[in-house]
Amino acid sequence: MSSITNKLSEGYQAAKRAVSSAPPNDAYMRWDAPGVEEVKPTEEQTTREIAEIMKNMQKHNFDQHRHAFRATHVKTQGIVKGKLIVNSDLPIHLRQGIFAEAGRVYDVAGRFANEPVFLQPDQSPGPRGLSLKIFGVNGEPLEGANESDTTQDFFFNNAPMIELTDIDTCLDIMRLRERHFDDPVTLQAKTALRTDALKQTAPTMLPNTNIISMNFYTQSAFRFGDYYGHIALFPADDEMSKKGSEKVQSNQSREILSEWLREYFTERGAKYEFKIQLGTDPAHHPTEDASVVWQESTAPYQTLGILEFPPQDPLSPARRVFWEDHMSLSPWRGLAAHRPLGSINRLRKAVYQQSQKSRDHLNASTSRQINSVDAIP
């Protein structure tokens, strides 16, 4: 059955490719080519406003729970440790950054979480995320990064696009969310009045199923050595995909997603294909509009390696507290070869710094960069 499905999908993508005006699929564009990034003159001021709003929302959460959380992806569902194995037969154009050495094996740690800024019950539909810290990387670091850091951080969500679109739209939405932080009904009503209402409400339409079954996407673009692209993770174990039939029900525990993860990892491990789409044209594969889904017909996924997590306890108290109160991650921590691109990513540089400072201040704790997976309980 899967072979038939794959053939139908290939035929569909070939038909879309035939009518597309995009360049050939292998005409990969350089990451620094004209048009790939376009910085607006107002971006710095907008970034400061959004960072302040996010800080205020962290304070709202603190006032309710007497504990400060991250600015987004507040609710931890599970934390796992494993390995990233780079494919041994990578073609030359994919041997970039941390994937430069075919067959290389990296230690990895990841955190599954609900994306919203609220500590919601799992019955509330919405985006789910997976953040990764890859250890032992070598290469030129991003500007401003500590040269002693040897990690690469990536962030994924279970939708291939982000409704925030760009930095200006993000400011509008964050103003709404802060203004109606304690009134989700009014927030929903106000959002429904926007001209992009369908886009903004799309996250609530995502399937509310077992997290282990989900695909994960960076949503925004990153440099990939000479080129640029979108990265994604796809379950590579049929048992993971089967869990997609497990849908959250109203009569279940409000913590059912973490309960399902613990149940799954008690019995077996998880495996993902680590893939990338490479861009060929900003008109078809933009970095500045993160709400555009890159079509697979013009930017097919190519496999870079396998991400594996063995059986383990994904939510021990020691591990959860260590990650939530002491772990430091940022899309701007890593190699220059994987530089974040687009206004949403440029914004994240300031927001993640502000989030960490606010969290440390309110919790009287210290977040820190770690360079070994063994430092995590």
Rank of each mutant, 00 (worst) to 15 (best):
T5A: 15
L8M: 13
K16T: 05
D26H: 11
Y28W: 15
W31R: 08
D32F: 10
G35A: 15
T46E: 07
M57F: 07
K59C: 04
A68G: 10
A71C: 13
K81S: 08
L84V: 02
V86A: 01
P91I: 09
P91W: 01
L94M: 07
R95P: 01
I98E: 07
E101Y: 00
R104F: 13
P116M: 03
P125E: 10
G126T: 12
R128W: 08
F135T: 00
V137G: 03
D149K: 01
Q152H: 05
I162E: 06
D168F: 01
R177Q: 14
P203Q: 06
P203E: 03
P203D: 04
T204M: 12
M205W: 14
M205V: 06
S213C: 10
S220V: 14
D226Y: 00
K247T: 12
E259W: 02
W260T: 07
F265N: 05
R268V: 08
A270S: 15
H284P: 06
P286C: 06
V292P: 08
Y301G: 01
E308A: 14
F309Q: 10
L315C: 12
R320D: 10
V321S: 15
E324S: 11
M327D: 15
P331E: 07
L347G: 05
R348G: 08
A364W: 05
Q369R: 07
V373W: 01
